[in-house]
Amino acid sequence: MPVIALKNLTLGYDRHPAVHHLDMSIARGSLTAVVGPNGAGKSTLLKGITGSLRPLSGSVNLQDHRVAYLPQQAEIDRSFPISVRDLVAMGLWAEIGPFRAVSRAQAQRIETALAAVGLTGFERRSIAALSGGQMQRVLFARLLLQEAEVILLDEPFTAIDARTAVDLLQIVKRWHGDGRTVLAVLHDLDLVRAHFPETLVIAREKIAHGQTGEVLTAETLFKARQMCEAFDDRAAVCAA
């Protein structure tokens, strides 16, 4: 049973496609790595699934609308004066929305989420004072609070230390064990082979999708690189 179905999906910016004609589905409860060269459209695909980027054509069908999204750290303004606790509390958005206060029970859940990522005692710190690894732990704590069925991670293990990567990978595996659907953009192919049962290779279009062992071959990776290098933003719009 697919939880995400993409139908002839084209996504892009300023009317230029970044990734086009995607036809595929993601099975409920799957743990999928999204792999491809830089500029392949991986992050764009995640933004399209969350709904923050409107499709140029085609559609995204979500069977479960409880979607949690981890953006790349570069997209977060780390200089903004907000405390760890307040940023993590935003994971409760579906419950508190823009107006409601955080209840005592919800405050306890924030503490529990911070403890789960090893950041007890960091509640009052400003996010500007955190290391890259600590910041990623904060964002995972926010994901934990969202309790979503579909979890989209954009480069969750990039530029963090090995210990943090191992800790956060355990959380990802726990989500998978709970039957949640996880889609993660990754660059470390060894990590993908070791821990992610399914892989989607994209390079402006779908190159391959399936079992990691079958999909992550030298041939598909070469094809992905070729596709990215050959892609011309000024090319005429192709037929649907």
Binding site: K47, T50, S52, Y69, P71, D77, I82, L87, A94, G97
Partner: peptide, 15 residues
């Protein structure tokens, strides 16, 4: 507004 400043992508994903 705080989220729009600090983490606009997250705001777009939840609201």
């Amino acid at each position: 507004l705080v989220l729009e400043c600090a983490d606009p992508q997250f705001l777009r994903s939840v609201s």
